Amino acid sequence: MAKKKKNNQSNRMQWFFLVIVVPTIFALTLTLVVLTFMGVNVFDRAENYANKIPGVSSIVSTSEEKDAQRETDQLEATIEDNNAEIDQLESEINNKDATIDDLNQTIAKLESEVESALEVEESVDSEDNRATDMAQSFQEMDEEEAAPIIENMEDTLAVSLLAQIKSEERGAILGVMDPEVAARLTSLMTDTN
């Protein structure tokens, strides 16, 4: 009897499957194909109807929600790209500011060097002018008076002064000087020329 009961249950299952489930799936598939050929988007319609049902609407997401999510994702990606670009540009600005600071320091250094060179040139010019004026005075002096004075001068000043004096008078002054000092000054004069 247990076999008969078990056999009876399996027959009912087969009957239910063959009579109800298979024809229903076939009918739904046929309806879906026919509606698709008619130009009806069945899935969109089903989604719209599902969203109108209170319990089902929270489970089913609409295409608008998907589009909104996709657009949000794209905008977030754009924001991240823009932030990365902003960071890169800020880094470039900082590098260029550092370069500008370095160049400003270099400019200030070069300007101070130019000012120093101008001051040195002015002092050299004024020294040359003094040497020229003094040379004029020494040309008018007697060589015995001029020689001891020039011997006691600083070598550079003495050389520039002797360079300004005419060669005949220079020779006379050097001839009266101490031979070692005269030799040193003459050597310095030839090195500068």
Rank of each mutant, 00 (worst) to 15 (best):
N104D: 11
N82T: 04
S137F: 09
T78G: 09
D128R: 14
N82M: 12
E111W: 00
L118W: 05
D125N: 14
T78A: 14
N129P: 04
K66I: 06
I79D: 08
A108L: 01
S63T: 10
E71S: 10
L75Y: 03
I107Q: 05
E76G: 03
I86F: 08
L103H: 00
K96P: 01
L110D: 03
D97K: 12
I86S: 03
S112R: 08
V114I: 08
Q136D: 15
E65C: 00
L89G: 05
L75P: 00
A135N: 02
L89R: 06
N95L: 08
D73R: 11
D87E: 09
E115I: 03
L103Q: 04
E90Y: 01
L89T: 03
T78C: 03
I100K: 10
Q88D: 15
S116N: 13
D133P: 01
N104C: 01
L110I: 02
A68E: 11
E85V: 04
V114L: 06
I93L: 15
K109F: 10
E71N: 11
S91W: 08
D81M: 11
D73M: 09
I100F: 04
A135F: 00
E111P: 01
D125W: 09
E90Q: 09
N94P: 02
D73G: 12
T72Y: 12
V120H: 08
N94A: 10
L89Q: 08
Q74D: 04
E113G: 01
E111Y: 00
E71I: 00
V124R: 15
Q69W: 05
S137G: 11
V120G: 00
D128F: 10
E127R: 15
T78I: 13
E115C: 00
T132A: 15
E115R: 11
V120R: 13
E92G: 03
E113K: 06
V124N: 15
N94Y: 14
I86V: 07
E64R: 12
I93Y: 13
S91R: 06
E111N: 08
S116W: 02
M134E: 13
T72M: 12
I93D: 14
E76D: 09
K96C: 03
A77S: 12
D102C: 00
T72I: 12
T106I: 05
E92R: 14
R130N: 10
L103F: 00
A108S: 06
N95R: 07
T99N: 15
D97Q: 12
T132Q: 15
Q136M: 13
D97C: 03
